[in-house]
């Protein structure tokens, strides 16, 4: 896959007398058609990283290239779209006028057909005459996506797109992101909403205190070495006896005759299955335990903070 975005060791240092590192040697690669989630607590440097890549803020050290052109040259922004957080739209414009205004700014000729095409793509064509001030946040975001698509963007930056959206709006935006992915459009999403990102991202970067602490494919990140085993027994006494015979095994009684165990080591799976059958039980479920992105996020940050605290003490 083609690499659309390559950032190598980029840093942002601010302040004159007292220098402060906001982003510390961050490296990111984004491939064509990939959705990458940028996760992190407030002040982790996610938005600053995005702004540096977009040329809105200077890069103190390191290099970045988009579409092969060095950032922040105008050539690096050809085919790039950005949806900032909490943008205040020009309320006096209708959805159609807003998108047309951006088409004109981008120098797009014969824009009428293209505006219709992209407004239909984001399900906003029927609301084209509605003033932006009368649109919901979700609708305004879709209008923004239309103006980005109009420029034939191949790489889209979204800064906290899910904040302030109701559940319906979140679902619609998720579906929109998935449809953009199908068109081979790459997306870098910066968000706190780990649960939502898990549904759309291929890769996740977790940032903390200006540094990237995790940068892996989502599937790999969420996978654990644990396995959940659910078994049913003839009666509750048999189930309790089976569990009592294995004190080292963490388990819980789901129903009177049904037990759920968590196996830490996959090598013990065959032995476990054999023991259940030998005890007259029936194997109901045997599935690998996956973390949620929220759990991973909290786990990663707690480990990281513990390490930092340890380093300081």
């Amino acid at each position: 896959m083609t690499e659309l975005l390559v950032a190598e060791e980029i840093s942002k240092i601010v302040g004159w007398l007292k220098k402060e590192t906001i982003v510390d040697h961050v490296s990111i690669n984004l491939h064509e058609g990939e959705i990458m989630g940028l996760l992190g607590p407030n002040g982790a440097g996610k938005t600053t990283t995005m702004k540096m890549l977009l040329g809105l803020t200077s890069i103190s050290s390191g290099t970045a290239r988009m579409f092969g052109a060095p950032v922040p040259t105008p050539a690096s922004r050809v085919g790039v779209g950005f949806l900032p957080e909490a943008i205040q739209h020009p309320d006096h414009l209708s959805v159609y006028e807003y998108v047309r205004f951006h088409a004109r700014l981008s120098g797009i000729n014969d824009s009428i057909a293209k505006i219709e095409e992209h407004l239909r793509q984001v399900d906003m064509w029927e609301y084209r005459d509605r003033l932006l001030k009368e649109c919901s946040k979700g609708m305004r975001q879709r209008a923004d996506v239309a103006r980005i698509l109009l420029r034939q963007a191949r790489l889209i930056f979204l800064d906290e797109p899910f904040s302030g959206l109701d559940p319906c709006g979140q679902v619609m935006l998720k579906e929109l992101l998935m449809s953009l992915k199908k068109q081979n459009i790459s997306i870098l999403v910066n968000s706190h909403a780990a649960g939502i990102l898990a549904d759309v991202c291929d890769r996740v970067c977790v940032m903390n205190k200006g540094k990237i602490v995790v940068n892996e494919p989502l599937e790999k990140l969420l996978k654990t070495s644990q396995t959940r085993v659910v078994a049913s027994f003839a009666d509750s006494a048999a189930a309790t006896a089976f569990a009592a015979a294995r004190p080292g095994l963490s388990g819980k009684q789901k129903e009177p005759a049904v037990f759920e165990f968590i196996l830490d080591d996959r090598n013990g799976l065959n032995e476990m299955a054999g023991a259940i059958i030998a005890a007259g039980g029936r194997l109901i479920e045997m599935t690998p335990v996956m973390l949620t992105l929220d759990q991973l996020f909290v786990k990663t940050l707690s480990i990281r903070n513990d390490e930092m605290a340890g380093g300081l003490s």
């Binding site: 105008p74 950005f82 957080e85 951006h102």
Partner: peptide
Amino acid sequence: IQRKTIYAIFTLPMG
């Protein structure tokens, strides 16, 4: 700048 509308313009390939 305050309304952040400038971001949409500055991310266009223009100086």
